[in-house]
Write a protein that binds this DNA or RNA. Structure first.
Lengths: 131, 131
DNA sequence: TTACATGCAAACTGTTTGCAAATAT
DNA sequence: ATATTTGCAAACAGTTTGCATGTAA
C-alpha cells in the first residue's frame, strides 16, 4: 500500500508535506526520532517544510495510529514508527533507543487497578549505561 | 534521623530552604509531584522560596539519591520520594501516579544488552484510562 | 467553494543560567 | 575567609497557536 493510501485509510488528507513525511516514515522500518531529527532530515532534502507543519504532522500521524510516542526523556518527545506492542532499551549515554518485541518479555503481578480504570498500555524501558 | 542529618549524610549543606523543602519531602511518605506542585505548596506556607531554588534543590536531592524522577509525560518532570525499586500506574486522565512495589511484579525475557552496557534500572509504567 | 492544511512569527511552558547578595562552614 | 547557595530576571529549548494564504475534496 502506498503512502497516499495509508493516509487516506486513516482519514488524513494526502497533502504534499504529509506525503513527503510519510515517504520517510511509513515504510515498515522501525525508527526512533524526535521532531528535530526529522526537521534536519527534511532540511537536507530541501523539502522546505515548516517546523510547525512537522509538529502538526507528527501529531496527526500519532493520533491516527501511524506512529506512537515514547516517554524516555522529559526534555523532548520521541516518536516511534513501530506501533506494534513492544518495549524499549534506552542507552542513557547516547540516547539510543532499541525495540524489544513484546512477545519476548513477560510481566507478571500487575495489581488490581483503581475502580473504572483499564490498562491502556504498558511501557517498559530498560535503561542502560556503559560500564 | 532528622532532616538536617539526612542532608548532611548525603553531603548537602542544610540551608534554610533545603530544610523547609526536606521537611516536606523527606518523611517516608511516598509522594509524586512536580516542581510546580511544590512551588504552590511552599507559596501557601509563605516560605518565600524562589522557583529557581526549588529546581536547584530538587536537582540536588535527586543527584544525592533522596528523590528520583519518573518519565511519564514529556511535558514536565515528576519527582518521586520513593527511592526503592518500584513501578508505576499512571492514570492518563487525571495524571495520577501510584506506586507498585517491585517485588509484586516479575519481568522475564530481558534480552542481551549491547556490548559494554549494563542495566541501570527498569521502568515499568502501566498506563490506564477510565472506561 | 468550503473545510482543512500550511507557513510564519509570535506566544507559551517548563527549566536553566548568570550574577550580585546572602549564608554555611 | 571562602566556597556554596540563594533570589531574581533574563535566557533557553521544545512545542503550540493565531492568522492569512494555499490546497484538497
Amino acid at each position: 500500500m502506498g503512502v497516499r493510501d495509508k493516509l487516506l485509510a486513516v482519514g488524513l488528507r494526502p497533502t504534499k508535506q504529509r506525503l513527503v513525511i510519510g515517504e520517510i516514515l511509513l515504510d515498515d522500518v522501525h525508527r526512533h526520532f524526535t521532531a528535530e531529527d526529522l526537521h534536519k532530515e527534511l532540511t537536507h532534502k530541501d523539502a522546505g517544510i515548516a517546523l510547525a507543519t512537522i509538529y502538526n504532522t507528527l501529531g496527526a500521524f500519532t493520533e491516527a495510529g501511524l506512529l506512537r510516542t515514547v516517554s524516555v526523556d522529559s526534555e523532548r518527545v520521541y516518536y516511534d514508527t513501530n506501533t506494534d506492542p513492544h518495549y524499549h532499551v534506552y542507552e542513557e549515554d547516547g540516547s539510543k533507543l532499541t525495540d524489544i518485541d513484546a512477545s519476548r518479555i513477560s510481566i507478571q503481578g500487575i495489581p488490581d487497578l483503581p475502580q473504572g480504570q483499564v490498562v491502556d498500555r504498558i511501557d517498559v524501558i530498560i535503561r542502560t549505561r556503559s560500564t
